[in-house]
Design a binder for these strands. Structure first.
Lengths: 246, 246
DNA sequence: TTTCAAAAGTGATTTTTATAACAATTTGAA
DNA sequence: TTCAAATTGTTATAAAAATCACTTTTGAAA
């Protein structure tokens, strides 16, 4: 079960499972079955078991998974047992909104420093106690503190230029809110957050439906839904990626 | 070439192609080859040609694609030739940042109204001339103006509840910034924007690299990169989805 | 004209991913 | 003890998607 190539979609699903496991744990649930957890995450239970099987055997047959222990296992796989420090580049509306987004700290991400190249922003105090610093300080801060993650929220025209600086300084992962594909060397990963692409896929679907060009819908209830008699809302995570990684 | 099932990833790539075509057009480029455009979008040129072939034949052999015409074609496929009106639910930091995000209007999306259930927000004037309205007004506004798209940026606990209202009111597509999977009936689509999931995939990769558990890297230059002698930075869009649609 | 290089379109093939199906294990009740 | 129900782990199968490799078309230079 080792050594096999692990689908990118599996990692994304692990993150979703992790989130629901946290909620179960908070609710005092001790044990969960693949069917239950898969239902929460809107995936096929066989998929969930398969996803886990890439990494080992964590359940008890006939019983299910221990919530606390599976949560810990998945967090470990994702590398989330420790805190991750992140630099934010770009203190515009999106950047500032992210600083205040509770989900980041809840998941163990800590914004260490904020940078911008706009003279008007530099030196400004932001909510949360961050002071906007000049891009020139980036390499120093990243190297000194050994930071590996960056959130990139600058105007798209400057995305590549900043990405180069980040990579040069030792950043290993970039969460990119810009609308340009950036190029990074092997060993550095990029994930894109691209709202309008997603909206475009929605408009595509709506347009299809409106023109009567309906998707061939398999109206039958999928077999796995019958494992339990839950209402079917097939909103699978399959193929969700947004990978764009390199 | 019609009637075939169209991969979700194809639609996402169309959106990426569209964006680069816009830039080419703005730069006065008249004609582009599949290799050039594919390089910009970081995909395999055969992939691009195949993506287009689902919808028709738009190029000229030996020549390439007319930029203006292909842009128009793709925009039409995606349903982007008209303006789309959107309601925003949730006037928190993320929601407000989105209102100010230029990419939306550039792509033809117009925020028609903003809603929140927080008494402290309701009635507040936001930059851009929007006044925050109470959730109670949602159904009326959506129905009266025939709005089909919604951006959902409320606290996750309330996501499903609001989604139900949106669906009930006639919304056909939801861009969901909440961290809960929402359930919607067939005919309604959902796209998830989930920052921390993406960060988690970055930490996974970084952790892998750090533990020496490297991905099996195919060090050879992919064949398609040899079509032109460009430097290879394999950051494919393949499998990017974030679909989670229903 | 003829020839050649460029480049689209597409069927065939390969790769990747998801699903199904079932044997193995566990628990608890008869 | 034995049996039945629950539920995992995993192999086999199917589905989906990406890539290749080849054919066709075009335009331009010789």
């Amino acid at each position: 079960m080792r050594k096999e190539k692990i689908p990118a979609a599996t990692i994304i699903r692990l993150s979703v499972y992790q989130r629901y496991l946290k909620r179960l744990l908070a609710n005092g649930v001790k044990v969960v079955s693949s069917s239950e957890l898969a239902y929460e995450a809107s995936v096929n239970p066989a998929q969930l078991r398969k996803d886990l099987s890439y990494f080992g055997r964590f359940g008890v047959r006939g019983v299910g998974y221990d919530v606390a222990s599976l949560l810990n296992t998945i967090s470990g796989i994702l590398g989330l047992l420790d805190e991750w420090r992140v630099v934010l580049v770009g203190a515009g509306p999106i950047g500032q909104a992210l600083l205040r987004h509770p989900q980041f700290s809840r998941q163990g991400y800590v914004f260490e420093a904020v940078f911008d190249f706009d003279e008007n922003h530099i030196g400004k105090q932001l909510e949360g106690g961050h002071t906007v610093r000049a891009i020139e300080d980036l390499p120093k801060v990243i190297k000194e503190r050994g930071i590996q993650l960056a959130v990139l929220a600058v105007p798209s025209e400057r995305a590549q230029e900043i990405a180069d600086v980040l990579v040069e300084s030792g950043i290993k992962g970039i969460l990119n809110f810009c609308t340009t594909r950036i190029r990074v060397p092997r060993g550095v990963s990029v994930q894109y957050v691209d709202f309008t692409i997603l909206l475009d896929t929605l408009t595509y679907k709506i347009s299809q439906n409106n023109t009567g060009n309906k998707e061939p819908v398999s109206s039958a209830k999928p077999k796995w839904a019958r494992e339990h008699s839950w209402p079917v809302v097939q909103s699978n995570i399959q193929r969700q990626g947004v990978s764009l990684t390199s």
